[in-house]
């Protein structure tokens, strides 16, 4: 199922928007113009991820060294602070087994969406998630 989140201009880089559709709550992030959608429900106890702060990814090859990059691409759960990679939904502490579901998100032309009878303006770009 496709869901139109809103005009691109309303979700500027670094921001996020919570959408509810098809019984799901999904949070859509704009990372420098690319859009990513995650299940809003934290896989731990269900904390609302859209309320979580974002930060960069800190890694360390050796105690005392801090490599910090990808600023803004990690969301921390607002409750127990588990870190999730916004691009993949994978947790940092156990990326293989613990993740929040991620959904495809993309930008589509209003003109293309018009055919599907969403109320859109032709001249604008829209963020669309595939649920």
């Amino acid at each position: 199922m496709r869901h139109v989140v809103g005009p691109v201009a309303e979700i500027p880089p670094g921001s996020r928007r919570l959408v509810e559709a098809g019984g799901k709550r999904v949070v859509v992030f704009n990372l420098d113009g690319a859009f990513f959608a995650l299940n809003d429900r934290c896989p731990h106890q269900g904390g609302p991820l859209h309320k979580g702060p974002v930060m960069g990814l800190v890694e360390s090859a050796c105690p005392g060294e801090y490599r910090y990059d990808r600023r803004g691409e990690i969301v921390r759960c607002p409750w127990h602070a588990w870190e999730f990679d916004i691009r993949t939904g994978r947790s940092r502490f156990d990326p293989r087994r613990v993740k929040t579901r991620s959904f495809p998100a993309c930008i589509e032309k209003g003109a293309d969406l018009q055919a599907e009878t969403f109320p859109v303006r032709v001249e604008e770009d829209y963020v669309v998630v595939e649920l």
Binding site: A61, Y66, H80, E83, S91, F93
Partner: peptide, 15 residues
């Protein structure tokens, strides 16, 4: 606790 505050001790890759 580590799952939530891993960022404080980022050298800990494993539980």
């Amino acid at each position: 606790t580590w799952k939530g505050v891993r960022f404080e001790v980022p050298w800990l890759e494993r539980s």
